[in-house]
């Protein structure tokens, strides 16, 4: 039990209380659920591949998105992590291809450009077809700096480089929003159709 709690605690976002709660849940759960979970965990490494084109995680390389024929090959959306890609996919608003950087520039954590897939991004753009690169890194200091660094690296390639917009989140509350977000929401206001 202690070993399981210690292992679960190593997972991101899991503290001691949650780890203990999960361990007790598994202890009382049906045999098949525990077996299924442990089998899935055991297979995740051997049956997951990093896509050679976009560096997304999938069952094979190239991944499902890169292999999909209907995708717009001329637009590339750059994200920090596969989870960000999944969030954009869920929006169903983007039909282009992706490029997963594998993080964001964070010098104080020792995360420099050499740790990100920026060279691969530039090579991909230079290889042809891409006309627009959307920088969809997170709107925090690291994400913004990464976007600017990527834009500098992409400048010689001569493609259109855009950044995702800032604004109020759906269900947000102006009263609780920071003044930068409110200001940018006003700057990026749109006509009511």
């Amino acid at each position: 039990m202690q070993r399981l709690v210690e292992s679960l605690r190593r997972l991101p976002g899991i503290g001691e209380k949650s780890a203990t709660r999960l361990a007790y849940f598994l202890l009382g759960a049906p045999e098949d659920l525990v077996g299924e979970l442990s089998e899935a965990i055991g297979r995740i490494k051997s049956e997951t591949a990093i896509c050679e084109r976009c560096f997304n995680l999938g069952e094979r390389s190239p991944c499902k998105i890169c292999s999909q024929p209907g995708r717009n090959q001329s637009i590339l959306c750059v994200v920090e992590e596969p989870a960000d890609l999944a969030a954009i996919e869920q929006s169903q608003s983007f039909q282009g291809l992706y490029h997963v950087l594998g993080g964001a520039l964070s010098p104080i954590d020792g995360m420099g450009p050499e740790n990100l897939r920026i060279k691969e991004l530039v090579a991909r753009v230079r290889a042809g077809q891409v006309e627009e690169v959307i920088l969809a890194t997170n709107p925090n200091a690291e994400g913004d700096a990464t976007a600017h660094y990527a834009a500098e690296c992409l400048a010689p390639a001569g493609v259109k480089v855009t950044r995702i917009a800032y604004g109020m989140p759906l269900g947000g509350d102006l009263e609780y929003a920071d003044h930068v977000t409110v200001g940018r929401s006003l700057e990026n206001r749109q006509l009511v159709q």
Partner: peptide
């Protein structure tokens, strides 16, 4: 409550690098 995010520091690689260095030194 946010007073200033020093947005310029995010909009240039050298600005970001020097500010990160200074902040790490102070930290």
């Amino acid at each position: 409550i946010l007073r200033s995010p020093f947005l310029n520091l995010r909009h240039g690689v050298r600005h970001y690098a020097l500010a990160s260095y200074l902040v790490e030194l102070l930290d």
